[in-house]
């Protein structure tokens, strides 16, 4: 039984290659961002096309892949940035 549920959002090129803008991930209680990305890449069709170490944000802030996740977090995979 999953201990925490994370809403994962995909944007721009990543959403395009996977064909989805949002995926719900069920993870163990001690999961970090890297675990969520690994699960996403296995769980979603074409998910393995996504990079193993993309830029990521949790709850609207940039984080490292070692960041611990909590139930209800919003994880976002950010393609290479192009603002400005």
């Amino acid at each position: 039984m999953a201990a925490l549920r994370v809403r994962c959002r995909l944007f721009a090129r990543y959403a395009e290659v996977v064909g989805r803008e949002e995926v719900v991930l069920d993870l163990p209680a001690d999961a970090v961002v890297a675990d969520a990305i690994a699960l996403l890449r296995r769980q979603v069709p074409r998910g393995d096309v996504l990079p193993e170490r993309p830029l990521v944000a949790v709850n609207l802030a940039h984080v490292l892949h070692t960041e611990r996740l909590r139930d209800g977090d919003e994880l976002a995979l950010l393609p290479p940035l192009a603002g400005g």
């Binding site: 090129r13 395009e16 393609p79 290479p80 940035l81 192009a82 603002g83």
Partner: peptide, 16 residues
């Protein structure tokens, strides 16, 4: 073509 801030194509830039 998806572009990053260095002008490079993002993941090839071609739709699936």
């Amino acid at each position: 073509v998806w572009r990053d801030n260095a002008g490079g194509r993002v993941m090839g830039g071609v739709p699936p």
